[in-house]
Design a binder for these strands. Structure first.
Lengths: 173, 173
DNA sequence: ACTGGGCTATTCGCTCGGTGAATAGTTATT
DNA sequence: AATAACTATTCACCGAGCGAATAGCCCAGT
């Protein structure tokens, strides 16, 4: 629920979506439908409450405000650190493993190399973003994040490439 | 659809789930319901087809096999590199930005520090996994992946901590 | 003055991924 | 003979996400 956050200052759905687009342009895009659906759930859970309707030249609109419980939930969310997942989610990882299962080490190696090429290219793009003088700090911080993780992938690709033959042997035993 | 893969060698649902648990224990867990639902979709899309039913001492079971189209789709999936997301998905990133929005730089910094502590602890755990002599290559490769990304987070946390005051200023302008 | 396009605001319907419980037969245990 | 455990599938539900539909209002052009 990304929305507990956006409700800082009561707003109605449309405004929320706009605020989101403006403040978090680097984050996953958010559709209108999503906003209202989520607002509905938040209201059901008592985290937000409607704070009046009006229609100042335009269609009806319902303004929502955070409740006490809502603010508590937000505080809690901000205070909590992200619990680490006990498993690996990445498609990259899965694909290589599946390649080892259904094909051979060569196939897996091909995939690793192709992915490395793509990542390296993307890395160059992002570095360009960082040095672009028109970049905001938002942009730079987001680019840094992406770069760090691409780099992590690349390092993993490197060590895994060396291990792929052994791994293949282990998988087929 | 992680399942196109598991269908290497025709199998019925229950078997697939078991094979998944055995081969991909480090990946996201997979529920039975999920398997049958996904098989249904794959069948609808013509990627798998039922290959006979039997009941050798036990309930009815339907065996599924990959179709030609299914094998093509799998090959395609394995050949494709992952397209990079144009946006940043991480909760970590979002939380810090939201903290800057609703609170102040201090709050965001607190969060970054707490997250750094948690990550560092997790990093130690994973390093222990790697040196454990009973670890399989599966385990080691998965741990490597996780370590690389934790490290990426840590580096991002570091540079972001230094920028948080500036960022806060930019966000509130 | 009328008509169409564009903006604000919300709703609806659908698909997918994921979870947990329910069902039903079969075999092994006590 | 009762029951526990295993095999195999189904069902109902929720949240996330997407695209299309609706509807009123405002403004520009003809």
């Amino acid at each position: 629920m990304l929305l507990g956050l956006l409700a800082q200052g009561s707003r109605h759905g449309y405004e929320l979506k706009r605020a989101h687009d403006q403040r978090l342009p680097r984050a996953r895009p958010l559709a209108f439908g999503q906003v209202y659906a989520t607002l509905g759930r938040l209201q059901r859970d008592g985290l937000v409450a409607p704070a009046g309707q009006d229609r100042d030249g335009g269609p009806d609109r319902t303004t929502y405000a955070l409740t006490g419980a809502g603010r508590d939930a937000l505080d809690l969310w901000l205070a909590e650190v992200e619990p680490p997942l006990p498993y690996v989610t990445s498609t990259l990882f899965t694909k290589v493993l599946v390649a080892l299962l259904v094909a051979d080490a060569g196939r897996a190696r091909e995939y690793l190399v192709a992915q490395r090429r793509a990542h390296t290219a993307r890395l160059r793009e992002l570095t360009a973003v960082k040095t672009d003088p028109s970049a905001t700090l938002d942009d730079v911080v987001a680019a840094d994040f992406a770069i760090a993780h691409l780099d992590a992938d690349l390092r993993w690709l490197h060590t895994t490439l060396e291990r792929v033959a052994d791994w293949h042997r282990e998988v087929h035993s």
